[in-house]
């Protein structure tokens, strides 16, 4: 039995014709009709991931990759379809975004670490290792508001790599930080993969998909447009990208 079974997953967002986000707006416009535009982000996505497998997901911007990952991680809920995940997931998504800017690196590590599943004692013991992995030892007591976005991302990925559960879900993991940090991430990734962790990985980078993924999906307009070996999916992705860029020129 597959560790992750997704069947006909669908997700849409309702975009209202006018924004009503306050009690006042709801009251004053109670009798004014408003329309909703439906944005179908995922139309029907079906796939399996086996225990210990690394599945890559590729697709253009807006193809539904990030939404799919958020559904997998339980951050968004699907509108239709079914999803069975047989093991706890560690999500590594949008980690560069949002911290408590007033707190220093250590407090943010403890906050994110415990939210991601570490016991407080484990998080405290791991602080030095996490800071070293991120290359931020010297900035441990500096408030996050003084970090650059790259530094904040490095710190977040370092926390996430330390909190790994059975399944890892990664979004553009190797696009963060400098070459040295990316190398450390790749080494850690290989180590986790060798230990038998199941990994779902989103990337636009053909090298990442063909190097790290035994199997991959190509998402297009909320559906699985192509499925196969990592190298084959990269080929299809590149072919479609070339076709798309050539299209307007011909016209």
């Amino acid at each position: 039995m597959a560790l992750i079974e997704a069947r006909s997953l669908a997700k849409s967002f309702r975009i209202p014709s006018d924004r009503r986000e306050t009690v006042r707006e709801h009251l004053f416009n109670a009798f004014r009709p408003r329309t909703f535009e439906r944005l179908d982000v995922l139309r029907s996505v079906t796939f399996d991931v086996q225990q210990g497998e690394t599945l890559g997901i590729m697709g253009r911007n807006g193809s539904g990759k990030s939404t799919l990952l958020k559904i997998l991680c339980g951050i968004y809920r699907a509108d239709r379809g079914s999803l069975r995940v047989g093991a706890p997931i560690t999500p590594i998504l949008e980690l560069g975004l949002g911290w408590n800017p007033e707190l220093d690196g250590i407090d943010n590590i403890l906050l994110l670490g415990t939210a991601m599943g570490l016991r407080l004692r484990e998080a405290k013991d791991a602080v030095d290792e996490i800071l070293a992995f991120a290359g931020l030892d010297r900035f441990a007591n500096v408030p996050l508001k003084h970090y650059s976005s790259g530094m904040a991302s490095r710190l977040a990925y370092s926390v996430a790599f330390k909190t790994v559960r059975e399944v890892l879900v990664l979004d553009e993991i190797f696009a963060v930080g400098d070459a040295e940090f990316r190398e450390r991430c790749e080494a850690r990734y290989r180590e986790l993969s060798a230990k038998g962790h199941t990994i779902v990985l989103v990337s636009h980078d053909p090298r990442v998909i063909s190097t790290f993924c035994s199997r991959a999906l190509l998402l297009d307009e909320g559906r699985v447009a192509f499925e196969g070996r990592g190298t084959d999916v990269v080929g299809e992705y590149s072919r479609r990208a070339l076709t798309a860029s050539a299209g307007p020129a011909r016209a």
Partner: peptide, 18 residues
Amino acid sequence: LMGASLTTASARVDVAGM
């Protein structure tokens, strides 16, 4: 939920620590 069925393994969280 809303026609989607979801089954996930519970993730442990140190509630007191958090």
